[in-house]
């Protein structure tokens, strides 16, 4: 246990990066995913089709490949995408190019799952609701923003929570691409104290379990608070 107790500052800093990755990508993926979902059910056939192609492609690509694309391919396509211009320091945390590439990859990857979760939520809204909204003369944007999406968001809280929990776990992939978050810190501590690998593993596993359980607690609260009678 000494290996972790002596490095508690590193341990908490690593989980700080994990939480930061999760929070930033979580919010971005929700915004992007909502936009995609609107395209996905909208009246413009080309956008419906393009979104469905995008979602299918991204959902079937391993996250590592998405990360590789944004770490090595994107900078070649367009210079500023190397994110070298980014260097924010808050407290002891440095948010640099690696962090930005990780956030972009995680957000784009997760947004396709958010889109699917929201689409299933839209499908759960009863037909009468949309018909009533049209009957009082609302245009598509009004039907969506005033009537369907508020209900769809509520109906899709459980699938959205699963998507975001998957995102918490997926932040570990950033370890492969140079972000010093929990999994990469676990590997480096294990490398230094390999005789204590079990204790180190348990300590880091507990960190992830705590984050996941705290998030699910709030998601469950939100769901019971928001549940609508249908």
């Amino acid at each position: 246990m000494d290996a972790v107790l002596d490095n508690l500052d590193l341990y908490f800093k690593a989980f700080g990066y994990t939480v930061a990755l999760f929070l930033v990508s979580g919010v971005t993926s929700m915004i992007l995913g909502t936009l995609l979902a609107a395209f996905r059910v909208g009246p413009v056939p080309v956008l419906r089709w393009a979104t469905s192609v995008y979602v299918t492609l991204v959902r079937n690509t391993p996250l590592v490949i998405v990360f590789a694309a944004f770490s090595f391919m994107a900078p070649m396509l367009w210079g500023p995408l190397n994110f070298r211009w980014l260097s924010v320091h808050i407290g002891g945390f440095d948010f640099t190019a690696f962090f930005a590439a990780a956030v972009v990859s995680l957000s784009l990857y997760t947004s396709s799952f958010v889109c699917e979760a929201l689409r299933s939520g839209v499908n759960a809204v009863s037909v009468g609701q949309a018909e009533a909204a049209r009957a009082i003369g609302l245009p598509f944007s009004g039907v969506m923003s005033q009537v369907v999406l508020p209900q769809a968001f509520r109906a899709s809280v459980p699938p959205l929570a699963s998507v975001q929990i998957a995102l918490i776990k997926n932040t570990s992939v950033a370890a492969v691409f140079g972000v010093a978050e929990a999994t990469s810190q676990m590997r480096s501590i294990t490398n230094d104290f390999s005789s204590q690998r079990t204790e180190i593993f348990i300590a880091f596993a507990i960190g992830y379990v705590v984050i996941v359980e705290v998030f699910s607690f709030f998601a469950a609260r939100l769901e019971s608070h928001w549940r609508v009678a249908r």
Partner: peptide
């Protein structure tokens, strides 16, 4: 519950060292 909550990559690194 435990194995659903921790990242595969963490498990992978641990089993690799083990």
């Amino acid at each position: 519950e435990l194995f659903r909550a921790i990242p595969v990559l963490l498990l992978m690194v641990f089993t690799w060292y083990t």
